[in-house]
Design a protein around this nucleic acid. Structure first.
Length: 348
DNA sequence: TAGACGTGGAG
DNA sequence: TCTCCAAGTCT
């Protein structure tokens, strides 16, 4: 019998696996340590729609400050949100904490995919990945890498997202019963390093002999993706309100739902991805225009004007005075970190 | 189900 | 400067 696709892939992975802070070397037995599923879970949530390079420093920080799920579950919402600042998709951080607390309440992470799937922030992909990588269970792990590899292997040329079910079926068919974690990670490494979106390195691919898209030519054509919609351009205003000679700045906490939800931020004029802000300042006074920052979201582009005011009054609504010298510790999302940087450069 | 939801790096 | 997109989830 000839070697199967999974055999080829696992052999390749033995030699080419990336070394990552949350990963065991290929073939390593699963550690009998509750910190192991914790680290797998944490890394998988951080890696959702996020590059390995971006995740690494956050993973190091989180595991240093909160080495166990119990430690994370005991942390305050503000500390966790601030630690996540800059990584994006902040609902992940809110769900991370919710999940940690549920896991601690039930005495640890479940090993069953179906049970994992019920936890907040764990969808089909992440539940399968944790079951396979942390617990060695056979699971069909399908992320964008696996979709790409499988679509090319079998020359599946119907467009996403409709073809997703067929791709999953094909992935199921090549998933081995053993080495579940290594197989899943090998597929993702192959997709990330070799079977890349734009210029796949087919000459280096361990599966080139099995790849129908390569045999047909133009494997980079697959999978077929739907056309993108144009993103709207929005305008808004952020307000840099200081007192005591500019040593303290007024920060608010954004509502838990919606953009940058639950994050500390500068007060603003109510801009959103759907509409421009009102431009109205929260306080009367001698405002100074400091210029603007530009920022791209997935579904909107924003030009954010920054206006400054030194005042003796307390701005309306909830908020707190924050020491400007410690602004880095406030945990501002990147948009507002840019605005703060502009304000500091302008006001000295 | 399609749209909301961040960010930084690559080309 | 600009587009694309990277280990998705939730509603």
């Amino acid at each position: 019998m000839t070697a199967s696709i999974s055999d080829h892939l696992l052999a390749w992975y033995d030699a080419h696996a990336r070394e990552l802070p949350w990963r065991l070397p290929p073939g390593t037995p699963l550690p009998d340590d509750p910190a192991w599923p914790y680290r797998v879970w944490l890394s998988e949530v951080m890696l959702q729609q996020t590059t390995v390079a971006a995740v690494k420093p956050y993973f190091e920080k989180f595991t240093r400050v909160w080495p166990t799920v119990e430690a994370l579950a005991a942390a305050s919402d503000e500390d966790v949100m601030a630690a996540w600042a800059g990584l994006g998709y902040y609902s992940r951080a809110r769900n991370l904490l919710k999940c940690a607390r549920e896991v601690v309440a039930r005495g640890g992470f479940p090993g069953e995919e179906a049970e994992l799937r019920k936890l907040p922030g764990l969808g089909d992909y992440t539940a399968a990945a944790i079951a396979a990588i942390a617990f060695g269970r056979r699971a069909v792990v399908v992320d964008a890498n696996v979709e790409r590899v499988v679509a090319r292997l079998f020359a599946i040329d119907d467009p996403l997202p409709g073809v997703r079910k067929a791709i999953r079926g094909a992935a199921d068919a090549i998933t081995p019963d053993a080495h579940a974690g290594d197989f899943a990670q090998a597929m993702m490494d192959l997709g990330a390093q070799t079977c890349t979106t734009r210029s796949p390195r087919c000459l280096l691919c361990p599966l080139r002999g099995d790849c129908r898209a390569l045999a047909q030519g133009q494997p980079e054509r697959l999978p077929v993706k739907p056309a993108k919609k144009a993103v709207p351009q929005r305008r808004g205003t952020a307000f840099w309100i200081t007192r005591k000679g500019g040593t303290q700045v007024w920060l608010v906490t954004r509502p838990a739902d919606g953009m940058l939800g639950g994050m500390r931020a500068l007060p603003d004029d109510g801009w959103s991805a759907q509409a421009n802000g009102s431009g109205e300042a929260p306080l009367p006074g001698q405002w100074h225009d400091l210029g603007a920052v530009r920022h791209g979201f997935t579904h909107a582009k924003l030009t954010l004007e920054v206006r400054a005011l030194e005042t003796a009054y307390i701005p309306p609504g909830e908020g707190q005075w924050w020491p400007v010298s410690d602004i880095d510790a406030a945990g501002l999302a990147t948009l507002f970190a840019k605005a703060a940087r502009l304000a500091l450069a302008a006001t000295g």
